[in-house]
Design a protein around this nucleic acid. Sequence first.
DNA 1: CTGAAAGCGCTAACAG
DNA 2: CTGTTAGCGCTTTCAG
Lengths: 341, 341
Amino acid sequence: MSSATIKDVAKLAGVSPSTVSRVLSQHPKISPATVRKVKEAMETLGYHPNIMAKSLVSKSTQTLGLVLPRSAEELFINPFFSEVLRGMLAYANTAKYDLLMSSAHSQQEELEAVNRMVMGRRVDGIILMAPRKSDPIVDRLREHDFPFVLLGRSVDYDDVLCVNNDNRKAAYDATNHLIEQGHTRIGYVSGPPDLVVSEDRLAGYREALAEANLPCNREWLVGTEILEKSGFHAISLVMNLPERPTAFVIADDVVAFGLIRELYQAGLSVPQDVSIVSFNNIVMSELSNPPISTIDIGIYHLGYLTVQQLIRKISGEAITQPQITVPHRLIVRGSSVRSHK
Amino acid sequence: MSSATIKDVAKLAGVSPSTVSRVLSQHPKISPATVRKVKEAMETLGYHPNIMAKSLVSKSTQTLGLVLPRSAEELFINPFFSEVLRGMLAYANTAKYDLLMSSAHSQQEELEAVNRMVMGRRVDGIILMAPRKSDPIVDRLREHDFPFVLLGRSVDYDDVLCVNNDNRKAAYDATNHLIEQGHTRIGYVSGPPDLVVSEDRLAGYREALAEANLPCNREWLVGTEILEKSGFHAISLVMNLPERPTAFVIADDVVAFGLIRELYQAGLSVPQDVSIVSFNNIVMSELSNPPISTIDIGIYHLGYLTVQQLIRKISGEAITQPQITVPHRLIVRGSSVRSHK
DNA sequence: CTGAAAGCGCTAACAG
DNA sequence: CTGTTAGCGCTTTCAG
């Protein structure tokens, strides 16, 4: 049962263990004859290198750590996560890296998880998702000079690797689209408050309004509690204002789904009564009724590039551009254009 | 930089390495005094055990492998995956296990991934998702007597661990709900054809119809191509039949979203013209317009129990019940009940 | 209760 | 081109 070791292979092939090790690591100066002999022996023994032993000496694990934020609950609900993970795995796979995931329910656990992974030399690098305004883990990793990359941007340092969208510009574009459609009263439904991305998007929204000399009524700003399953519906408050918005920029497709439903229940339909543009372009936003206009932020690409950057860093490649911005584009669908029937 | 080893701690604490190791593994017979000394030393040195070294000798990695099926692309689009992963991580976390993910694009890569993980002694057990009719990996793992668990059921063996729903019964219940609402012409939209779950659900649908002496028209069976973004819309074919269905059982919530949209574009509305019941109860099914009636299969729970079973197996606990069935329940929402306005 | 010694499976100089 | 010799950092008998 217990698999064959490098010694067994060496014995069978009639060579020394180091020779076997050499063919394993494709060492250049090995005679083709021995290579064949050794490979045969490996074959017949069904040999597979013990990765633990290997990485104990080589100090490399070919593994990347993904620590899920303490808001994992929220995050997971969102198809954004699976899509970004898909991108990460895709690149990791091509580079022969695996992903080690660990979730944490508290700040405490989060730190412990990072410690286990980093100090335990279990991973070669760490991916941090959705950074908060000032993340102690970032500080920590930075001090230790351990390779890591941020999916999002760092507000504190500009030398840390990160992959991000221009969220300010994206929100600006989304808002402008609504303005171009003739809307003058445009509301905003925000995402989780302490996330950097939420702030950036809100800023872009404000900027677009200011530039167009449009009012930015505080009463038109809605928190994410709109998705809450409780009886309280924040949106009806907004829609019952004397001067109610005719359009909304929404920080997340999933929230847009909820909003459309809420509006519908309040007797308002999209886009006839209210236009909507949101963010992410998750697959289902196209399947919504009406289909949701949204900013495609290239989720898959975000994940892909995040891992690419990290692996570059690990391999010691020179990184010309620590901060990568994935381009976004507006996808106009039914939720923001009145049909001309 | 390079972290402290057990030796450094030993030196600082004035004991031998083995003693340090013993306090690490909570060995019973250690004097409280030395325990304190050692712990202090660990503290001041910022010591963290090297997991690779540890597992090299202990032959345990505290890691579970998750090999993503080659249809990962499809799978990932579906929020089902993130929810099940959430459940897996939740239990893994409590048991101090991490999850190692690896994706594969081909059958070949899939096997390689399993090999790397299993033979490389990188994981203590493997989770297999969405098994196909006869999966060579299952055979392999079974022969090697390596701990693994199936999320789904095995058609070939009944001694392998698996966690599943009673999908036949679930589809039966869904169909019956429609029958109770007075429908007599009920169609079915299926999932990926070669998956065991797809088959089970189709069987349950057929059974319910048969029992109620209702026709099971072949023309009312739609493949998943309905979600295809191409111009071709399978559903219009069905809805243009002289005897068209007044209700559909749909194998997956995401597909239901697409269907509702298609129907809407064809001028038909849900539930007025067509009633719908689907499967999974992903979070967004409640946010749909109309909200989707669906069978809650306890996705989170599935993931949670899958990992629990696997860890039990790994720990050598006696497993009284190799096959676990997670209960399902019908959630009736707007898509299957005409409102009485 | 604690230390010394051996070794998990692999790699990496250093000699041939 | 290949074998020998030392470890990587930790656990685990076996003696005290």
